[in-house]
Every structure is written in structure tokens, then in C-alpha cells.
Design a protein around this nucleic acid. Structure first.
Lengths: 192, 192
DNA sequence: CCACAAAAGCAGCGATCATTGCGATTAAAA
DNA sequence: TTTTAATCGCAATGATCGCTGCTTTTGTGG
């Protein structure tokens, strides 16, 4: 008899090709972590609890990830890769406004926010997982504009003026960043 | 025989007035939390371990604080209250530069940084402990300048331009914020 | 000096966690 | 089809954690 609780996944086909068992386990565990992160009980985010929620044995999680920190890092890597697109509106201002608005919408998601906070809490080096991709994308926007022959703010300045307020407001305050507010950040960064 | 490890405190006088036993226990526990926070093992930050390091019985910690989250909140409240002074240089620019530099130096301390990260990781509402006092102090600087009849940036704008980059750089990157860089933030906030 | 309330020490309990051998299942190679 | 290595399920173990009655110590006021 299945002593563990039922998994969250709705996909219950009998282990066919797309990914194999290993990939299904990984998806179920990732989903369980995301679910538990919103439950507002950080001490419940433990391997046995995660495994039970994923319908997987704790041993499997221990062997594949080892610790909650590494598991969180894995979830964050998946979450923060390839989900945001570098816009191309033709103008630097347009690109930045679009990108800042997208990022604000992304960071206003409670699940994403909980993940960021949990990652920050696990120590330090893992925190760059949540910002590395975004910094690179911002850099790409600036470099493309420079390739057009225009002068742009430095990447450092852009980080201070855009990324920093977005992450600060999301992580340290209880007001979610809105796309409209994000656009005002761009207007302060770029000279009128 | 004393099974627990020796406390960190150097003060070993036999329970005289200045604070009483209760206050000494509190100080020892706070110090133990700060010590353990730098040890880079977030899963070791547990009540029995904290109590042992403080030379105090775990029961005492459980009764006084209840959970690690509340204990962290208490440590943070002590740490972030009254340690920074609102400067008064006569000019808004001078005040902001001084305050930003002080805050940068404060946030570059590894112990403080570890505390901030741990607080963020415990859930959300506690994160405002690390920024509430600073926001109020920044507000005080702006309001004093307004009382002099001068126009100033809004508090929201000052947060985005000063507090946000400082906290972002400290928490999300591995480069500690320097006072010099903090002053450049002010130069970007105030019109030349 | 004595009494009393608050705080801390103590021992022990149940529950949970992390980890490890071992067998079973799966997916891919031969 | 058979083989083979990787992955996962299972059960058990030792360790740790969170918590709770009970006693002892502390410090304060009568």
C-alpha cells in the first residue's frame, strides 16, 4: 500500500518516453518544492516532506541532491533560465522599459519571490543564480545599443538603477513591483 | 561535568547587577547566533546548537524565543537599532553622502550580511526589520531639508536610488559595497 | 531574614531527520 | 533477447530536534 501521500503531478501515464522516470521524478520534486515554498513554513521545507509531497521516496532525493540547499539551487536554476526574453523594440528606452516591466511582473509572482528569499537564506553564492541571467540580459541590451553607435549608461549604473530597486522592493518590502513603476525607473536612468 | 561547550562571552563575574542573569543569557545567546551565522552552515542554526554554543540550556531558549525565526528577529532588532546616526552636515548632499557611506560600511560587515540573509530566508515580514530603521532615517534627512524650504527627491525615489543598490549589492552579489561607491549613488540621485 | 515569583537547569519523551545496505525496476546497450 | 549500469523503492538505524513536567537557583520585595 502506498504509505506516502499522492503526488501533485497530474501526469500519470505509465513511464513512457518523454524524459523517462528520472525526469519525471525531477519534475515532481521541483513542483513539490515550489508548492511547499508558498506554505510559509520554512522549517517544513525538509527532504522527507518534499519527497512525500512529490510522491517519491526520501532516499531518492537524498541521493540526487544531497541537501535542501542544492535542491533549491537546482530549482532556481531551472526557474531563472530562459523564461524571460530580451526585447527588441528598436530603441534603448523601449527595450529597457519592456524588460523592466517583464522583470517586475516576474518578481511579483509569490512563488518566485518565495524561491528567491529561500535561496538567499541558504547562504551566499547561490543568490547569484537569481540575478546572473538577468544581469547578462541587461548587458546584452546595452551592448546592442552600443553596437548601434550610441552611448549608454554603464552596466553597473543600469544594475543600480533597475535591477537593484526591482529586487529590493520584491525581497525587502511587502509591496509587489508593478510594471508601471518599473518603467519610471528607466526614465530616471536615461537622460530626458 | 560540563557536557556543553564553553560560552563565548569573556565576562564571567558571578551574576551581579548590570542586567542580571536574564540579560546575560540573552547576550550570550545573541552572540552565539551571530557566531553561528558566519559559519556558513545554515542547517546548523538550530536551537540546541545555539544553546550549547551560548553555554545555556536549550530549554531556556525554547521558552524565551520559541523558534529560530523569532530569535533571529530579536537579534536583528537589536542589531539594526541605534547603531547608525543621522548625520547633520548642513547640506542635503553632505548628509546623504555621509549616511550612504556609513550604511555601506555597515552592510559590508560579513556578520551583518549573514544576519540579513538569514532573516530574509525565514519568510518575509521579518525582512522589514533590516530596512525599517534605515528608511525612517533616510526620511528624516529628506524632511529636515524640506523644512529648510528646499525641494528634495521623494522618499520613494531616494529608496530606489540609495537603499536598494546598497542592499542589492550586499545581498545578491559577492562584492561588498564600498563607501566611495555609495557616494556615487548620491551624485546620481541629486541633480548636478 | 524570609517569602515569593521569575528564570534557568535537568532529564526524558516522542517525532522527525539524515544516512546506509539491499533488492527491484527501469532504460539503454550488446 | 539478454545484459548491464543507473535509478529508485524499501526498511532499519543512529542522531538530532522540539517540547514538557519538575526541581533548583536567582533576585526582589516585604
Amino acid at each position: 500500500m502506498p504509505a506516502t501521500t499522492s503526488p501533485t503531478r497530474t501526469d500519470s501515464r505509465p513511464d513512457s518516453r518523454p524524459g523517462g522516470r528520472s525526469a519525471r521524478v525531477r519534475a515532481a520534486v521541483h513542483q513539490a518544492v515550489k508548492d511547499l515554498l508558498t506554505d510559509e513554513a520554512s522549517d517544513l521545507l525538509t527532504i522527507p516532506v518534499i519527497a512525500a509531497r512529490a510522491g517519491v521516496h526520501a532516499t531518492t532525493v537524498y541521493r540526487r541532491w544531497g541537501s535542501v540547499s542544492e535542491l533549491l539551487a537546482d530549482v532556481a536554476t531551472s526557474r531563472f533560465s530562459g523564461d524571460l526574453v530580451v526585447p527588441d523594440t528598436g530603441s534603448l528606452r523601449g527595450d529597457l522599459e519592456r524588460y523592466a516591466a517583464d522583470l517586475a511582473k516576474d518578481l511579483s509572482d509569490p512563488d518566485t519571490l518565495a524561491l528567491v528569499r529561500a535561496i538567499v537564506g541558504t547562504g551566499g553564492e547561490g543568490a547569484s543564480i537569481c540575478r546572473g541571467e538577468r544581469q547578462r540580459q541587461l548587458e546584452a541590451i546595452l551592448e546592442r545599443e552600443q553596437a548601434r553607435g550610441s552611448r549608454t549608461p554603464t552596466i553597473e549604473r543600469a544594475i543600480d538603477a533597475l535591477l537593484a530597486p526591482l529586487y529590493y522592493r520584491a525581497v525587502f518590502t511587502d509591496q509587489a513591483p508593478t510594471p508601471e513603476w518599473a518603467r519610471t525607473l528607466v526614465s530616471h536612468l536615461l537622460p530626458d
